[in-house]
Design a binder for these strands. Sequence first.
DNA 1: GTGTCAATAGACAGATCTGTCTGTTTCGTC
DNA 2: GACGAAACAGACAGATCTGTCTATTGACAC
Lengths: 207, 207
Amino acid sequence: MPRNLKDHILQTASELFYRHGIKATGIDTIVKASGIAKMSLYKYYPSKDALVLAYLQTSADCMRNRILTGINDKNFNPQEKILAIFAVFDEMVASPDFRGCPFINAAVEYADVDGPIQQAAADFYREFCHLLTDLARQAGYSEPEELSTQLSILLAGATTREQIHKGSGAMRSAYKVAETLLKINSAEKALTVSGKTPLNRVEINKF
Amino acid sequence: MPRNLKDHILQTASELFYRHGIKATGIDTIVKASGIAKMSLYKYYPSKDALVLAYLQTSADCMRNRILTGINDKNFNPQEKILAIFAVFDEMVASPDFRGCPFINAAVEYADVDGPIQQAAADFYREFCHLLTDLARQAGYSEPEELSTQLSILLAGATTREQIHKGSGAMRSAYKVAETLLKINSAEKALTVSGKTPLNRVEINKF
DNA sequence: GTGTCAATAGACAGATCTGTCTGTTTCGTC
DNA sequence: GACGAAACAGACAGATCTGTCTATTGACAC
């Protein structure tokens, strides 16, 4: 059912790369699974590395979409948006197909290569932290970069833990910690600015 | 300089596995790097998988040693021991040879294999969480398992982040969060038990 | 010296992987 | 029906990987 051959190849390859790992997925496996000819694959993707890069690209697009949809659909304030990101991640790890973060996995598989694949993985991570920092800044926190680092650590750690022990509920634990951090930093910031503790407006409570 | 041939092979293999990845390290590479004959390797380790398992075993031993040394040397109380674990991890990620957690990396490389390698990785993680839970219980926290989950998330997340972006100081951020969590949960526990807030005894401040 | 045994050196088999090449088939357009 | 481009089918080269095999070296006990 390939509406577009190039996309069909990429989609099949992406599923296999994510499920079994990149190095464990050979070209012949992709060719057989997608039911296309090997020459067609090499026509659209001149090498396996090119295909892997495209896979990481679409993974980044997909992730970005899910996150932005999750935080922009309802009219959340910045603080609520941050917590909504944890809800998006909780959905992700709950999927039966979940097998960790594609970027971290790729970075691990291409250990010593300081090439485009490592770069792509690091780039997405950087972009993601940037989003968190922006939200923290918009929410008015005094140390947005430190806070976003802490939040990204929680997300990466819970993702990893769910990868090793599926269904451990790690993302919900991470959510609780994030809630705490937002409350505390919010209070600190308010104290330094206005001298009194603001209301706690974090009441999404998806969990 | 092989005092013991078997150990020498394992040590060389371990360094290569950790630095370049397991699948990226071939038997011939190990043979050349260690300066031994291939038959010697297969005499002591009947397959590459056996060598990988031994690698994970020694990694676990090494990690366990460092952690236990870090928390048992001085006479820390349980709360201080928990924070001392973060100090040990901060030392680890600061090493120029640091390239992430060997167990997580192995689990990622052997994605779909539900065999002994995945098992060994999951086992260490479980054992480690157990230690954290015990310490949390000894410290008297009301929800030791939830707390240990949160702490392990912080450690795994900071380890991952340092792997992707070396020298980002993620472990110190994780340390700060851990400190906060210990304070807060300590207060909660004390309130439920005695009705008043205890002194904050966490004053290691290695950072 | 001689026998024994661990270790070496390196060829080898068989499998697998990436990437190329050669035909053949299919299908839309004229 | 005829043409041409796209896709298929699969053999093939060359590299690499695991694991085995043979022949040789070297050291130590007797």
